[in-house]
């Protein structure tokens, strides 16, 4: 991409999770923005989760539902007072439904600079068996 094609980033407020269930934990929960793409062999998910450390991050895959959770600890020190706040911090939560069967043993997750890269390899499909009909 050349410089002339680079667009300017627009400010966006984080989207809060709208949950029908009551939250049991204090503070807001946000939906991380994500890219999802697929190849023949795997599904890859990239999610922006600034402030999440790998020890506070959790992936859960049950049947076809993938759940991402990341806790963010308030970065402010004890002696600090706010002058102004344009963004809020809190946990991240998002669920995805996967259409393919994932090989759970080969899932790979990396969290670098607040970006999650999750690789979900698909289970190799067995070649369809050809059935020959014998005339009886």
């Amino acid at each position: 991409m050349t410089d002339s094609e680079t667009k300017d980033l627009q400010a966006k407020e984080k989207e809060e999770v709208v949950s029908p269930a009551e939250q049991t934990k204090q503070g807001p929960t946000f939906v991380p923005v994500a890219d999802i793409f697929e190849t023949e062999s795997a599904i890859t998910l990239l999610a922006d989760m600034p402030g999440v450390k790998s020890e506070n991050f959790d992936i859960d895959l049950r049947e076809d539902t993938l759940t991402l959770t990341g806790e963010v600890l308030p970065p402010e020190g004890p002696g600090e007072t706010d002058i102004f706040r344009e963004y809020q911090t809190g946990r991240y939560y998002r669920q995805f439904t996967l259409s393919d069967v994932i090989d759970q043993s080969k899932i790979d997750a990396k969290l670098n600079d607040g970006v999650l890269r999750l690789t979900l390899p698909k289970v190799e499909k067995t070649a369809p068996r050809k059935i020959t009909i014998t005339a009886g």
């Binding site: 400010a11 407020e13 922006d48 989760m49 600034p50 402030g51 970065p75 402010e76 020190g77 002696g79 600090e80 007072t81 706010d82 002058i83 102004f84 706040r85 344009e86 963004y87 670098n112 600079d113 607040g114 970006v115």
Partner: peptide, 19 residues
Amino acid sequence: LINVSEDKDAYRVRTELPG
């Protein structure tokens, strides 16, 4: 988007820039 806070010695400006 930025957050600005202060304590007696300094101002702190924070912003989320993932990646």
